[in-house]
Amino acid sequence: MTNPFPHELSIGDVYYSPLILVALISFLAALITVMVLNKLKLTRYFYAPSYVFIAIMVLYIVLIDTFWIKF
């Protein structure tokens, strides 16, 4: 029984974990989300915006891992 999903990404002869790609995509998505929240001035309701950024990033990591890139 083979797994149809890759276990690692290769660039040249160096292998990387797919978690690096997922973390990069989720960081960019969280950055865009926080920029939208700043434009809408919704961040003033957060007690600690930096923790909210990390929470949004973790949420994106879980969602991307579950539905798109499986590692």
Score class of each variant (00 low, 15 high):
residue 22 V to F: 02
residue 70 K to P: 00
residue 67 F to M: 14
residue 28 L to C: 12
residue 1 M to S: 12
residue 29 A to C: 14
residue 50 S to L: 06
residue 52 V to N: 02
residue 27 F to G: 13
residue 19 L to F: 04
residue 8 E to T: 13
residue 25 I to N: 06
residue 8 E to A: 13
residue 49 P to Q: 03
residue 7 H to R: 12
residue 2 T to F: 06
residue 24 L to Q: 11
residue 55 A to G: 13
residue 8 E to R: 11
residue 38 N to R: 15
residue 4 P to D: 07
residue 41 K to P: 00
residue 26 S to D: 10
residue 49 P to I: 01
residue 30 A to K: 06
residue 31 L to R: 14
residue 41 K to W: 00
residue 15 Y to P: 00
residue 51 Y to L: 13
residue 35 M to Y: 04
residue 56 I to Q: 02
residue 9 L to C: 03
residue 27 F to K: 15
residue 69 I to S: 09
residue 27 F to S: 15
residue 23 A to Q: 13
residue 70 K to W: 05
residue 66 T to G: 12
residue 23 A to W: 01
residue 35 M to W: 06
residue 7 H to D: 09
residue 62 V to K: 07
residue 12 G to K: 07
residue 66 T to L: 14
residue 11 I to G: 03
residue 2 T to R: 13
residue 12 G to Q: 05
residue 9 L to V: 13
residue 9 L to H: 03
residue 4 P to L: 12
residue 31 L to E: 13
residue 27 F to H: 15
residue 68 W to R: 13
residue 34 V to A: 05
residue 55 A to Q: 03
residue 31 L to Y: 08
residue 35 M to D: 09
residue 33 T to P: 00
residue 15 Y to L: 11
residue 40 L to N: 05
residue 1 M to F: 07
residue 31 L to M: 09
residue 29 A to R: 12
residue 52 V to M: 08
residue 25 I to S: 10
residue 36 V to A: 14
residue 40 L to V: 06
residue 36 V to Q: 10
residue 56 I to M: 07
residue 6 P to H: 03
residue 71 F to R: 11
residue 20 I to M: 10
residue 45 Y to W: 09
residue 60 Y to V: 05
residue 62 V to A: 14
residue 35 M to V: 03
residue 12 G to T: 03
residue 34 V to R: 04
residue 13 D to F: 04
residue 67 F to V: 14
residue 68 W to K: 13
residue 65 D to P: 01
residue 35 M to R: 13
residue 46 F to P: 00
residue 24 L to P: 00
residue 17 S to W: 00
residue 2 T to Y: 07
residue 30 A to Y: 01
residue 23 A to C: 08
residue 41 K to Q: 11
residue 48 A to H: 11
residue 11 I to C: 05
residue 13 D to W: 00
residue 34 V to K: 05
residue 63 L to I: 14
residue 40 L to F: 05
residue 7 H to Y: 01
residue 31 L to H: 13
residue 26 S to L: 08
residue 14 V to G: 01
residue 19 L to C: 01
residue 1 M to Q: 09
residue 8 E to V: 11
residue 70 K to H: 14
residue 68 W to L: 15
residue 47 Y to H: 06
residue 51 Y to C: 04
residue 44 R to T: 03
residue 6 P to R: 08
residue 5 F to N: 13
residue 32 I to Q: 10
residue 6 P to F: 05
residue 3 N to C: 04
residue 10 S to C: 05
residue 32 I to S: 12
residue 29 A to W: 03
residue 32 I to F: 10
residue 59 L to M: 12
residue 23 A to R: 15
residue 3 N to E: 10
residue 41 K to N: 12
residue 31 L to N: 14
residue 17 S to I: 02
residue 52 V to S: 09
residue 46 F to M: 12
residue 66 T to E: 12
residue 52 V to H: 04
residue 5 F to E: 07
residue 16 Y to C: 07
residue 26 S to G: 11
residue 18 P to T: 09
residue 62 V to W: 08
residue 42 L to R: 10
residue 66 T to D: 08
residue 33 T to D: 06
residue 55 A to H: 00
residue 47 Y to M: 04
residue 4 P to R: 10
residue 52 V to Y: 06
residue 68 W to Q: 12
residue 56 I to K: 02
residue 21 L to E: 02
residue 56 I to P: 01
residue 24 L to C: 10
residue 11 I to D: 02
residue 50 S to E: 07
residue 63 L to A: 15
residue 20 I to T: 08
residue 20 I to P: 00
residue 60 Y to N: 15
residue 2 T to G: 04
